[in-house]
Simulated scan of single mutants.
Amino acid sequence: MSEHVKPTDTADPLAGGDRTDAATEAFVTHRNLLFTVAYEMLGSAADAEDVLQETWLRWTGVDLDTVRDQRAYLVRVTTRQALGRLRTLRRRKEAYVGPWLPEPLLTAPDVAEDVELADNLSMAMLLVLETLAPTERAVFVLREVFDLDYDEIAEAVDKSPAAVRQIAHRARAHVAARRPRGTVSPAETRGALQAFHQAIETGDLQRLLDILAPDVVFLGDGGGLAQAALEPIVGADRVAPLAAGLSRFGAASLQSTQVNAYPALVLRLDGEVDTVMAMRIDDGLITGLYAVRNPEKLSRMERETALRR
């Protein structure tokens, strides 16, 4: 559902006014939370909006008098819808042209202040979550990001609490082995980004080599709609010249902004967003560069997306 469409636009006109208003108020109250749950599970804002639309349609048919905890109920419905969507999305990714990257979101500074939420929203972390099976991802997100108890999660994923505990343990171990080696603060990322930005603008190849890890990985997502590398590019000696080449865009402007709660670079051509570049940092060096160029994934870069736990 678009942020510009009110939930009442899809409400049943035959429903009682007070009941419709109560349902709308509850949904609007939790909307940003529900979007965040869906986005964390899917890595796609467009699909997260579709999940919210489906959740709203189901919510309008619920007898509110039977719902003890509206927040928990809405999270449960959203999770179930996202799980179904995640399985469909995985099939779409198999036919995707080149590497698939999460859809970048322009985020407000207050999102970065929630360190735990910011860490899990980062492009690097979302790529780690991509390696989990659908149910593992749902359990990890609901437990580690939103701190739901095992009973609530069990209802959302249709498993027993004991099974959910086992899945959570397995997912935590899987993520721990693949996530960035230490918590990187936005300030550290900002420092690395500034050095990277300056090196690009000056075309200083040696400076780029100094801030890139020897085994840095560059992923470009054009989705077949914009030019991008079809395979990962590995190694500082290959990635540095590629990054330095950005300075050759004559009519381009390279700006630092807040993407998925972390500093990132946005390349604009003639005022239009052309590329969003996020990074992963380990031990003070850039180990991952993620360039999103697919125009279908850049629409959320013109306005801030409200996220919350």
Rank of each mutant, 00 (worst) to 15 (best):
L14A: 15
D12V: 10
F140W: 07
V141L: 13
P161L: 08
A154F: 06
L52G: 05
G223V: 14
V75Q: 06
S2I: 00
G61Y: 04
V5N: 11
A278R: 00
P232D: 14
V276S: 04
A236E: 03
A124S: 13
D158E: 15
A163Y: 10
R137I: 08
G250H: 09
F35S: 01
A173G: 13
Q206S: 12
L57A: 13
T24F: 08
A213N: 06
T257R: 10
L193N: 02
L101K: 05
E188F: 07
E103W: 04
L307M: 07
Y290E: 14
A112W: 02
E103P: 12
H174D: 05
L193I: 03
D274M: 09
P295L: 02
A228G: 01
T107L: 15
L132P: 00
L246F: 14
S160Y: 04
V239Q: 06
L121R: 00
D114M: 07
L298T: 11
G17E: 13
T287N: 14
Q166M: 09
M277C: 11
V145L: 10
D47E: 14
R80H: 07
A48K: 04
E54A: 11
K6H: 13
V97W: 00
A251R: 13
E201F: 11
R308A: 15
I281C: 01
L57Y: 06
R248Y: 02
A236S: 10
F140Y: 15
P134L: 09
M277Q: 04
G235S: 06
I167Q: 08
V292S: 04
R31L: 03
A177C: 00
D204S: 11
E3Q: 08
L33M: 02
L105M: 10
E201Q: 04
L129A: 13
A251Y: 05
T60Q: 13
I211Q: 11
A261R: 02
A11C: 10
A72L: 09
P232F: 15
Q198G: 13
F249K: 07
R293S: 07
L208F: 05
R280E: 13
S256G: 09
V28A: 12
R90D: 14
D215A: 13
Q206V: 09
L126E: 15
G271M: 07
A162V: 12
R181E: 07
A306W: 04
V51F: 02
A228F: 03
V259E: 07
T20I: 11
R165H: 12
R268M: 01
R90M: 07
K93C: 05
R309W: 06
P186A: 11
E304C: 12
V217P: 05
L86R: 00
M279S: 08
Q194W: 08
L101Q: 05
E136W: 01
D21F: 15
G284P: 12
P214R: 14
A124N: 11
L34Q: 03
M41C: 10
L225I: 05
R308V: 10
D9H: 09
R303G: 09
A156I: 03
E188Q: 09
A95E: 01
F140A: 05
V139M: 07
G220F: 05
E49R: 12
S247A: 09
S44K: 00
V37D: 03
S2R: 08
H169D: 15
A187L: 15
A48F: 02
A177P: 00
L86I: 08
S256P: 01
A291W: 04
